[in-house]
């Protein structure tokens, strides 16, 4: 059905669809219902044939744009590929998860297409209308894209992972046009080394704030984190103070998380932090200040110092786990 396909950028490793892209597929399905057409995935990279097959399990068709020149996710080279794919498929929408790649590449593609874009959508309201958080999550704003093609990034925590389709989609090679990185060049990724689950995908997040005072004090939070099989997070204040690396930051300007259980330890609950975690299912706050705003969003609040509570908390959770 030309003119009605929904195109979704799917990020991959060389062998697999990245789970970060799954919510975008769910959002694309909703858009496809509104558009009355199919969901077409596009994978871009180098040596990604196996990943294209993996991605095809979730969508109606996968365009596989496989070229050594596209190995790095450069917006300068990837955005023109997306534009060409939108044109070839006649897609009415282009979506991707709001990962650092999605947030880098999609606005450039929107710019090249002359298409309106909605960032970090939390709901699909219609073929061209979306709901998205603004003002650090203090407002939900409905927007309507007025152009023939709508572009959107998808807030991962607000859409479920995609389920595999009844039958896998087809994989088609998609030839990139001439690639020109315009003088942009990938040099290296200094990956954060952690054996813990990804912050945005963890079922439990234990986050520390300014109240921890010192990098050394995060050790006890790490113990709680590992006991629960969770990921470690931090407030902007803790990151800014150099207690933990910035990629642990949860908030408006950091990562947005929505785990089943969120511990906020020594975190006051500034607006910009709440924007990153208030969709968590159960929130526990431990803070010595009874007036801390974090208590207004916490399901369970314990007004005490972290020093006096976290060690016994670890001991008692161990005891509960031991007895089931």
């Amino acid at each position: 059905m030309p003119g009605t396909a929904t195109l979704v950028l799917l990020e991959t490793t060389t062998s697999n669809l990245r789970s970060a892209s799954q919510p975008a597929i769910s959002a694309a399905r909703k858009l496809a219902q509104a558009n009355g057409g199919s969901v077409v995935g596009i994978v871009i990279g180098s040596g990604i044939g196996a990943a294209a097959q993996d991605a095809a399990r979730y969508v109606d068709k996968v365009l596989c744009c496989d070229s050594p020149a596209l190995a790095a996710a450069l917006a300068e080279t990837w955005a023109p590929v997306l534009v060409a794919a939108v044109k070839q498929t006649g897609a009415a929408a282009l979506v991707a998860s709001a990962t650092s790649t999605g947030k880098d590449v999609l606005p450039r593609a929107a710019g090249l297409l002359g298409a309106g874009m909605a960032s970090e959508i939390v709901a699909v309201m219609g073929a061209k209308s979306f709901r998205r958080p603004t003002y650090a999550g203090n407002a939900l704003t409905d927007v309507e894209v007025l152009t023939p093609v709508a572009v959107a990034t998808v807030r991962q925590t607000e859409f479920p992972p995609a389920a595999p389709a009844a039958s896998a989609g087809t994989v088609e090679a998609f030839a990139p046009g001439p690639t020109d990185a315009l003088g942009a060049e990938f040099v290296a990724l200094h990956a954060s080394a952690s054996a813990r689950p990804d912050l945005t995908e963890a079922k439990v997040v234990v986050a520390g704030g300014r109240g921890l005072k010192d990098a050394q004090n995060f050790k006890v939070l790490e113990e709680l984190t590992d006991l629960l099989g969770g990921a470690l997070g931090a407030s902007r204040a803790a990151c800014d103070a150099g207690m933990v690396p910035n990629d642990l930051q949860v908030g408006q300007t950091g990562k947005v998380v929505a785990p089943e259980l969120y511990f906020a330890v020594g975190i006051s609950g500034a607006i910009q932090h709440l924007a990153g975690m208030k969709s968590s299912k159960v929130i526990v706050a431990i803070n010595k200040d009874p007036e801390a705003p974090i208590f207004q969003v916490a399901d369970y609040g314990l007004c005490a110092t972290w020093e006096s509570t976290v060690p016994p908390l670890i001991a008692q959770i161990k005891a509960v786990k031991a007895t089931g």
Binding site: L146, F295, Q296, Y300
Partner: peptide, 18 residues
């Protein structure tokens, strides 16, 4: 290209317990 239709306050979390 993008028209703002309306804003609303996000749903408040129900008050928890201390």
């Amino acid at each position: 290209l993008v028209k703002t239709l309306r804003h609303e306050a996000p749903p408040a979390r129900k008050a928890g317990v201390k």
